[in-house]
Design a protein around this nucleic acid. Sequence first.
RNA 1: GCGGGCGUGGCGGAAUCGGUAGACGCAACGGACUUAAAAUCCGUCGGGAGUGAUCCCGUGCCGGUUCGAGUCCGGCCGCCCGCACCA
Length: 857
Amino acid sequence: MSRYNPKETEPRQRKRWDDANVFRTRSPSEAGDRPKYYVLEMFPYPSGRIHMGHVRNYAMGDLVARFKRARGFNVLHPMGWDAFGMPAENAAMERGIHPKGWTYDNIANMRAQLQQLGLSIDWSREFATCDTTYYGQQQKWFLDLLKHDLVYRKESTVNWDPVDNTVLANEQVIDGRGWRSGALVEKKKLTQWFLKITQYADDLTEGLETLDRWPDKVRLMQSNWIGRSKGLKFKFAFADQAPEGFSDGLEVYTTRPDTLFGAGFVGIAADHPLVKSLPQTPELEAFLAEVKKGGTTQEEIDTGEKLGFNTGLKVAHPFKAGETLDVWIANFILMDYGTGAIFGCPAHDQRDLDFARKYDLPVVEVVLPPNADDSFKVENEAYTGLGTLFNSDFLNGLDIEAAKAEAIARIEAADAGQGATIYRLRDWGVSRQRYWGCPIPVIHCDDCGVVPVPDDQLPVSLPEDVTFDVPGNPLDRHPTWKHVNCPTCNKAARRETDTLDTFVDSSWYFARFTSPHSNQPIDKAAADYWLPVDQYIGGIEHAILHLLYSRFITRALHTCGYLSVKEPFAGLFTQGMLTHETYKAPGGEWVDPSDVDITTEGDKRKAVRLSTGEDLKIGDIEKMSKSKKNVVAPEDIFQTYGVDAARLFVLSNSPPERDVQWTTGGVEGSWRFTSNVWAEFDRLPEGDVAATDEAAALELRKAAHKAIKAVTEGFEAFRFNSAIAKLYEFVNTLRASDIAKTGTDARREALTILAGLIAPITPHLAEEGWARLGYESLIAEADWPAFDPALAQDDVYVLPVQVNGKKRGELSVRIGASEDEIRQMALEDETVKRHLEGVTVRKVIVVPNRILNFVVG
RNA sequence: GCGGGCGUGGCGGAAUCGGUAGACGCAACGGACUUAAAAUCCGUCGGGAGUGAUCCCGUGCCGGUUCGAGUCCGGCCGCCCGCACCA
């Protein structure tokens, strides 16, 4: 009897895997008839240390990789580093360390930690996005995108983060603040590089329908983000003299052209160009100032009042001869959506109705709800449901869809506008005024304009002799790097000093992993074999940005001939976060869990700070974060309980898509399980012992085969917590079994199965147990255990018997017993008999394997 | 405001085909071992009534469908997530 010692076992088993190089990826030709399976976890930013969230993410990916490998797939399971970005520059500024040194040191540390986790990764494919060999290839395809007209430059107002001194994409601005720094974002005009993601807006929307192994939630979020809407763009002619620059009329956009006859006013945004051509009266200025003041916080928008200003301008209704509509400036109209101008239909849009009621504008009902008569009037609630058009001339009697089509056709025939599809999605601004990123490979020449860096001069490497003692971009102030000759005319020219948004780096790494050492961006044959990624695993926080950008870049690379696929990730799984209880000291500061002692009295829990002895307040369970100090360090956990117990715990306690709460008790339970499992492997006599109790032996075998079935199904369905619960049950059966009765054959079979089943979760323990059973091979290379269907099923099952739907007894029924037999048995059950006394059985429902129900009355 | 999701013991969660509600784990409680504690082992563990067999109640609330509802339908209440005056 030996005690399980993970500190000794785990490194030893890892060394065996390394020595045998078991996790190398097979080339397509080596794979034989093994189908390919590409499993990928979102690669980490090299902050320097892993956290428990990483442990959970990579434990899940590793489970899938090991499981699929055992199931006969040729598995690709790589790892790399999302290594460009601002923290490296911040470290440089704060501590005078060069970003490159800082980053590669962090990578070395984190690699060691990930390797300690025992992940079945093919490390020969590792790269960092800051490797010249990676970003140099990125520059190559960037120039291809340029050739294909998917990249352009324009002057634009950008979101400027005054703390990070950089430009942010729209989606990196959250509630008016930078997503990373939290600083209030300012507006600034700069010439910026853009990627034409909007060119794929339709395809990105429609592609979502093919992603049937993605969470619906993520597909919905992406669809909303792209925000495709179909409608009509048309121009209202001014009734009188048109203002300067608007002789063609005022263009509006609507998704409800069917309600045109219900138009009550025309509205424009406060920053619409038309506003500038109005007489700049004090009243107008006061109104515009008022609108500007209207904040952007959630509360102000929720409770915000509709504000309007009548411009005095009038436009002609396109279908009602002689009728005009007033043009109002309204605070609820946005300049950057549609055309910045609308017609309001108060009866059928709540905002328009609120506005019309406030300023006493006409409300004309044009959609008749089903079962309403034509006296239908709205009060203070707009009618937005289905119905039939009325009060609408040639649209009368049509349903909404038909009326939309007819209105569009009429407007088009009158040459006043056309049906239009618009998007919320904007092109992706990728310029960053930073050093630690991928240089944009172009040269600016006064004569030739923007000139791509010629292929033989790629990659454009980052200069290393830079300093961070002053704010701004070190590339921009570098004495020599930016000064080059124009590749076309050879005159003095300047390099582009902007670098690419790091989301570009992470938008194609999955493709690079298929041929990480190629001297082209992507080896097409390798990509064709491996892509799409079969199972992608990562955090829900990337539901929009990273995943949308990756889908776009995949399409762009498809257009440029690099990739055959258009969707990068066939299956997506978004895992939940790690949470932990919080502790607060009397002084109000958060206290690290390692400094807390919890005592219980009955169901009361008390927290005491170890270092000071003061009583602590036990706070909410929240996402692990440094600011709340409710983090546990993976190193400490590995040291105390071993890597396998940590892996087991993060997989066992909650469904994988949900948050999991870290508790000391929980991980101790996992540790107990690993010790118990080892004790079972160790409880094997030297010689062979024959079974003395065939029934006991059979029962053990059945438990083992049932476990295979349950665990296999659980793993396939991503129900890891349930699968692990079944393993616990199996181990409980095993512990209760008696070798003297079962004999060694049944026991050995059960243990062999157990080793196989736990290998994806606790691989070191599985390997140690496998060796203890006497196998010289590695379980990491073994096939997944197969179950015997006859053994995985009981030949007697328990059938509940109900009377009027209430359980009154249960029967042990032989598989295949006839309904009559079952009914007869039930009628002999004492309790059932009692409940059937004196009543009439009206009906008997027999569902074999499920239920027997006597309906009486 | 709009869209989506979720409400099950003291806690995390099972029961995903409408068929035994509470698997498995944690915590708690009782006992064994120990000088003692930890560890370990055995047992109890939704609420109520009863010595007991057994019975009643119970999956956020109200109602419906069904032989049978945690599961399906309608209406509320609460919590979480996403988007946000998107025409």
